[in-house]
Amino acid sequence: MTTLQNSPTSIRAVRPPSRLLPALALTGYLAVAATALVRPWLPALSPEHDYATRYGYATPAWVSLAAAAAGLLTLVVRRRRPTGRAPMLAGAAALVLLLWASAGVVLDLFRGFFWFTGIPAGEFGLVDWRGAVGRVAAAAALVPTALIMLRTAAPRSTDRAPARWPALVAAGLALVYPGVKFFWFLGGTFARPVPYPEGFPVAESVILVGGVALSLLLMRGLQSRLLHAGLIATGWLVSLVTLNQGMLPIFGMINYGLGGPMPAAVAAFSGSGWMTAVLYGSWAALGVFLVIATRNSRRRTCR
């Protein structure tokens, strides 16, 4: 008992992991593998409406199978050795492959909303069900896998409060994409795609306000436990969304190297392809720093 009291690590940090997360992860891996195997028999969109192929995130089926295998390996290794290098490496591979297999799920859900509600949206009401079911399954498996990996990480001393600066970095990164869109809307021509038919950046305004507000709230925290729990859940969700969107060109270029088409997000900028890296890279970086900020905010409430 004395050893626990004198240890710099809190009891909460070394508690045994819940069995719920591995069960959810296992269910997710089986769903990812199943959707990859049945993909050839699912209905496909016509070539002119196949947005997943056009945007370069029609991921090969073997990526989903590899993600499921890496996830299963993570559970097996972690059961035998809860901490250490082996479970961390297996888990990192599973996270990358699941993120790759789920790339584009945000756009699938966006289109699925219009399909379900029947709101007239033209082509945006069409859903690539053949690929969408696999991307949704991979995204669903990604969540418990990420939470398991957060618990697998070596416990840290609670003598010092978690840093708040990652939240400030996230707030700054949340300004990049909306700022560029406002610059182009106001007449700026530097690195602007031609043609550029977009009007006032309404969605980008919401992203700007929401991203900055979320980051600052994660840094400050909320007094109510219930509200703070909702804030943490929002942080994890937005982290997944921004990472998923930000990594689209990278996974699209990998798919292109494997024989797929050039991603439309890259081709749209023609000679200013570096701007694609800046814009989407800001999303990916925002996701990374939101993960850190969300975890730090959660650790502060557990002290």
Results as ranks from 00 to 15, higher is better:
residue 250 I to W: 15
residue 194 V to W: 08
residue 154 A to S: 03
residue 49 H to C: 06
residue 74 T to I: 02
residue 53 T to S: 14
residue 72 L to H: 05
residue 201 P to A: 02
residue 127 V to W: 08
residue 126 L to I: 11
residue 40 P to N: 03
residue 251 F to T: 03
residue 290 L to Y: 11
residue 78 R to F: 01
residue 251 F to G: 01
residue 84 G to R: 04
residue 110 F to A: 13
residue 277 A to P: 01
residue 158 T to I: 05
residue 216 L to R: 10
residue 233 A to F: 07
residue 245 Q to K: 12
residue 258 L to P: 06
residue 213 A to D: 11
residue 126 L to H: 07
residue 122 G to H: 11
residue 229 A to K: 06
residue 238 V to P: 01
residue 253 M to W: 08
residue 83 T to Q: 13
residue 242 T to R: 05
residue 17 P to E: 01
residue 270 S to F: 10
residue 43 P to D: 13
residue 168 L to K: 13
residue 68 A to K: 06
residue 62 W to R: 10
residue 255 N to F: 02
residue 141 A to T: 09
residue 291 V to S: 00
residue 73 L to I: 04
residue 21 L to Y: 04
residue 98 L to Y: 07
residue 202 V to W: 05
residue 150 L to F: 10
residue 196 Y to E: 04
residue 46 S to V: 13
residue 292 I to R: 12
residue 128 D to V: 12
residue 171 A to K: 09
residue 219 M to C: 13
residue 272 S to P: 07
residue 272 S to F: 14
residue 295 R to D: 03
residue 298 R to T: 02
residue 293 A to S: 14
residue 117 T to D: 04
residue 11 I to L: 14
residue 147 L to E: 09
residue 19 R to G: 07
residue 294 T to P: 03
residue 104 G to F: 03
residue 36 A to S: 15
residue 151 R to T: 12
residue 19 R to Q: 09
residue 246 G to Y: 10
residue 145 T to F: 05
residue 83 T to E: 07
residue 80 R to H: 05
residue 17 P to D: 07
residue 167 A to V: 12
residue 118 G to S: 08
residue 234 T to W: 08
residue 254 I to N: 03
residue 301 T to M: 14
residue 53 T to Q: 14
residue 192 R to P: 00
residue 181 K to L: 12
residue 121 A to M: 11
residue 89 L to I: 10
residue 1 M to H: 14
residue 206 V to M: 14
residue 145 T to S: 02
residue 226 L to P: 02
residue 135 R to V: 08
residue 67 A to S: 13
residue 207 I to Q: 13
residue 245 Q to A: 15
residue 147 L to V: 11
residue 172 G to C: 10
residue 10 S to Q: 06
residue 7 S to C: 12
residue 291 V to N: 00
residue 84 G to E: 03
residue 57 Y to D: 02
residue 100 W to P: 04
residue 258 L to F: 06
residue 144 P to F: 08
residue 10 S to H: 07
residue 195 P to W: 14
residue 87 P to H: 00
